[in-house]
Design a protein around this nucleic acid. Structure first.
Lengths: 144, 144
DNA sequence: TTCTTGCTTCAAGTGCACTTGAAGGTCCTA
DNA sequence: TAGGACCTTCAAGTGCACTTGAAGCAAGAA
């Protein structure tokens, strides 16, 4: 792992082992559920940096890229705007001098995610109460 | 509570107690953070049913409406499309004959929310790992 | 009486995250 | 030599959830 590497989630499994990990864009599309068009667009806006190319200019994605894409997917699930992810990707490209800023961003994101989880847990409680109400109404249709 | 009532979250606090709960649209806007325009739009699309009116036609929101709006806010947080919320609002208007369908919807939503919470918890774990990496890198900048 | 707040309808605009499509080119395999 | 998968650039379209604005009117307070 080089100093520029983003620390990558352990335990993510890949279609092919390291060393044989050369995927075409359509393989990555199939694996991630994103369209080829979208993958090119990600690269274009700076969200999918430095994908290797074959001698003829075709993209060669590796397991690292798959990991990055998975991370992006997670960030998307947190509701992070694409512009912020692009910013993070830029910091990754700038190297280890940006470790502190990257950590700050991730810590802020972490806090937001925890808040979001708490809200969703509250919502589950609200849903449970309503579900109970609707289920109980069978037995006491006009009851309070 | 009438049979048409949606079961309302307990413990939500209101600006004014039941009985004195007549709010103008701008009061509701201030309280909910939604714009007056948006509240009218909600009503127009069927997401904010049966708001009372004054003799002169002005909307008079009550605590029930505030509770409904809070529920809508929660559903929005779960990512439920507005069209689905409108569907639910329609069922509420149709009365107790739709209790089963309403419960089904909420149970499906509940499942989705639980799935979402689990994903977010995974994401927190991923973020923690990366934060640790960036924090640890201070002490071993070129380390694995 | 004038000002504020509210009402209606209708149309157009915004921001985000893609999606779609077309035009024209290259490379590799069968 | 034909086909398929890839490449580029560029423009326009989509879906969602609002947002903004304008026109024109009514009610109530200062």
């Amino acid at each position: 792992m080089t100093a520029n590497d983003i620390c990558v989630a352990a335990g993510s499994d890949h279609p092919r082992p390291d060393g044989q990990d050369r995927y075409t864009i359509s393989e990555v599309a199939a694996f991630t559920g994103l369209r080829a068009h979208t993958l090119r667009w990600y690269e274009q806006i700076g969200l999918m940096p430095q994908v290797e190319r074959s001698h003829s200019g075709q993209r060669l994605f590796g397991n690292r890229d798959l990991d990055w894409l998975d991370f992006v997917r997670r960030l998307r699930l947190t509701g992070m705007p694409v512009a912020d992810m692009v910013r993070f990707a830029e910091l990754v490209l700038e190297g280890e001098a940006t470790y502190d800023e990257r950590r700050d961003i991730l810590e802020r994101t972490r806090q937001e995610v925890l808040t979001r989880i708490a809200e969703l847990q509250d919502t589950v409680a609200v849903l449970d109460a309503k579900i109970d109400f609707y289920a109980g109404a069978h037995r006491a249709p006009e009851g309070a």
